[in-house]
Amino acid sequence: MALEELFSLVKRLSEATGCGGDEEEVVEIITSELEGKAELGRDRMGNLIAKVGSGRPKIMLAAHMDEVGLIVRHIDEKGFIKFAKLGGINDQILLGQRVKLKTTNGSYVYGAIGSKPIHLLKEEERKQAVSYEKMFIDVGVASREEAERLGLRVGCVATFDRTVERVGNLICGKAFDDRLGCAALIEALKQAEPKCEVLACFTVQEELGL
């Protein structure tokens, strides 16, 4: 695979939305890449399994499709959204992040993470790191009713709204854990000529501890 083709694959995988339990966008990308190149199937949990080769030994390789994210736990009367974390996220990277929330009808609403402004903080508060419990997502509405009309409810999931960009000889983006692993498995399967059975498992809900 040429470097530009690999970058394009990584970009599509990274920018796809796929919190634990809702990895279908990622599944669609992987399926489109491997159709005709591997035998594809799903198990009851939703893991995507790609098989190439036959015979023993049987070898399994795995990469998880899901990413860390946020889940709506409360919408206050002014339309600000309180959230909990899905997966291991350092609170200190949250403030100012753009996010996209998946609504009850499957569309997306965009917002940003904020907290109490600095000019309203007491002296002691300014010395403390802000925990996620004191943050909120602002989606540009003025009431709970407006937020609900957009299709937002408790239980809706949010992911970071990030694109993949080149930074010198590096790239930056979201969900590289483990979409880069998914890209590596895809490329390995395309090139593989195994003398045994190889199962590539693209797994779900790893960030939730499954």
Rank of each mutant, 00 (worst) to 15 (best):
I29S: 01
L13M: 09
G151C: 07
E123M: 13
K100D: 05
M1V: 09
E148F: 04
A84N: 03
I89W: 04
V167P: 08
C172S: 13
T104S: 07
C196F: 14
E206G: 03
V72K: 09
D161E: 11
K11M: 10
I49K: 07
F7H: 11
K85H: 01
G209F: 12
G88L: 10
G20D: 09
K85Y: 04
G79R: 03
Y110K: 13
D91W: 00
E146L: 05
V99L: 08
L180S: 10
G155I: 14
D22V: 10
K127C: 12
A63L: 02
C201D: 00
E39M: 13
L199F: 15
H64F: 09
L94Q: 04
H64A: 06
K195Y: 09
A175K: 03
R144F: 08
E28H: 11
G69P: 03
N47V: 09
R73M: 10
S115G: 14
F160W: 07
L34C: 14
M65D: 02
V109N: 01
G111P: 08
T31L: 10
Y110M: 08
E206K: 08
L170I: 03
S54R: 15
K82C: 05
I113W: 01
V72P: 05
G21Q: 05
I81D: 00
A112T: 15
A142P: 02
L95M: 13
G96H: 08
Y108R: 05
K122T: 15
K116P: 11
L34R: 12
H64Q: 08
L180D: 03
A200H: 10
I186K: 04
K134F: 10
Y110E: 11
N47Q: 10
L9D: 04
S8V: 06
S14E: 02
S107L: 07
A2V: 11
S131C: 00
T103L: 03
